[in-house]
Design a protein around this nucleic acid. Structure first.
Lengths: 126, 126
DNA sequence: GCAGTCGTACGATAACCTTCGTAGTACGGC
DNA sequence: GCCGTACTACGAAGGTTATCGTACGACTGC
């Protein structure tokens, strides 16, 4: 009910009622992206999405939190412009907005991902 | 007193009582750095410190907040391992821990700084 | 149509973060 | 010794966040 006209201005052509609102490319803010990536759960999600490469359903990424919390983290990532979410039947597919992020902040995503991998390797082999 | 043995393990050779505790290089976490940089005030501080290059006193960076809040942000930056703070008379000098950050997360700081500059230019000329 | 799976919405709670004001400490100059 | 400057510590208000549980809506398969 009334999902498109009362809340946000950056609704990217919501044709179906079951469409999700994403920020446009020039609505994405660096601070928001950094904040989204500064949470361990969300950084883990982004790393798995980047490793998968293609679209991945929410439930295929296992997190040590409840489903409600998982939904919350995916929503934060979407609203900060880091991932794109599309309904596909009963599942919701997730993918990194690599083109938008690379255009706005060249190299940022790759640098953060490799930094995360460096740190993970360092914490496993001390 | 007893400032060195009860709270933390990573106290970098505190000789004087007026020494500040910094995390050691391998205590710095990527999530902490990203969180520190995700605040507009702190990102601004880091940008000015990077532009200055050398050590800068706290009061030479003007922020639209009170001095208490400024102290708080500098402390967060220090505790996350982004800056190094040293007392120098009545002033406290601040510098970016570039060597440590570059060793842990190669390219991260420069990428974030250039992303911040890109965004600032984009927001000024829309 | 019915049941099962996938994900959402809403309420609640506890923790955290940002900001401020005030009071206080350390250092340098008179 | 005394005062001014630079910064800190503490307490508090206000908002945001992360987490959970439960109840609900959407789609698929029988």
């Amino acid at each position: 009910m009334g999902a498109t006209d009362d809340s946000g201005a950056a609704v990217t052509t919501a044709t179906s009622p079951r469409e999700l609102a994403h920020p446009a490319r020039d609505e994405i803010r660096l601070e928001g992206v950094l904040h989204a990536l500064s949470d361990p759960m969300r950084l883990r999600v982004v790393r798995e999405l980047a490793a998968a490469g293609a679209e991945v359903s929410c439930s295929s990424i296992e997190l040590p939190v409840t489903k409600s919390t998982t939904t919350h983290h995916f929503r934060v990532l979407r609203e900060c412009g880091v991932i794109r979410q599309v309904y596909r039947g009963t599942a919701k597919m997730n993918g990194i907005r690599r083109a938008d992020l690379d255009a706005l902040f060249p190299g940022l995503l790759d640098t953060v991902l490799s930094a995360a991998e460096n740190q993970a390797a360092r914490l496993e082999n001390p």
